[in-house]
């Protein structure tokens, strides 16, 4: 488990230990307000009850969709009352757990028809980045930072670097990121703080234990990604 950070609410975003999962709250709230039709919030994307609670503020929110009983249990414990489970239940134990859930939650199983569309990546589009810090600048045209696959994921491609148009993220290190730049003068130096845009949201939330809600460059909230690991 990620060690809880001592970063105080109100601190500048760059003070949070890197690599950190950052959520731009203004963008998140705008995305939520833009939901056009009734839909179920797909929890496997963010696995974070606090985000689902925020999604529930939309007048078009119609409950949750989870992949598994394990995911559903986490969100039921967080107070959600209407959950669809996508995965067929094929063991006695899974059926027992679903029956137990169904006592306090309206549970829609895989076999039952549910016409509600899934509200998945759209809720977080453009709102999620992972911070990084340059720790090494070993040769001209190359900078090494501390956000590797284990902090941002590469299953769906390399991340993009925000704000450095001449830089390219290459390679697939587990613990590092390698940045290549054409012009040596335009490379970030040791200690520089960066934001990376992940190639897949479900992956990035499967890597972190905490999400950091930020607004105008300031840390506003720290949310446990409670269903992380609940496959």
């Amino acid at each position: 488990m990620q060690r809880p950070l001592a970063t105080a609410i109100g601190a500048p975003v760059a003070d949070i230990d890197t690599p950190a999962l950052l959520i731009d709250l203004d963008r998140l709230d705008a995305n939520i307000a833009a939901l056009p039709v009734p839909a179920r919030a797909a929890v496997w994307v963010h696995k974070t009850p606090a985000i689902a609670h925020r999604q529930a503020q939309s007048p078009f929110f119609r409950g949750l969709a989870a992949r598994s009983v394990a995911e559903a249990e986490v969100f039921a414990a967080a107070g959600f009352k209407d959950i669809r489970i996508l995965r067929p239940l094929v063991t006695a134990a899974a059926l027992r757990r679903a029956e137990a859930l169904a006592r306090s939650v309206r549970l829609v199983t895989a076999e039952e028809a549910d016409a509600l569309p899934l509200w998945a990546d759209e809720a977080l589009a453009g709102a999620v980045t992972v911070s990084a810090r340059v720790a090494s600048a070993p040769e001209a045209g190359r900078a090494i930072h501390d956000c590797g696959q284990k902090a941002i994921g590469r299953d769906f491609g390399n991340p993009l670097i925000r704000g450095w148009p001449g830089l390219k993220a290459v390679g697939g290190s587990a613990e590092h990121g390698i940045l290549l730049g054409d012009d040596a003068a335009a490379l970030p130096r040791i200690g520089a703080w960066l934001e990376l845009i992940p190639s897949d949201l479900t992956t990035v939330f499967s890597l972190h234990d905490f999400a950091h809600g930020t607004r105008a460059g300031v840390l506003e909230a720290v949310w446990p990604i409670s269903a992380r690991g609940a496959f």
Partner: peptide
């Protein structure tokens, strides 16, 4: 029932 995020497949 093994999703990609349970194993990673870079």
């Amino acid at each position: 029932d093994v999703p990609i995020d349970a194993i990673g497949a870079p």
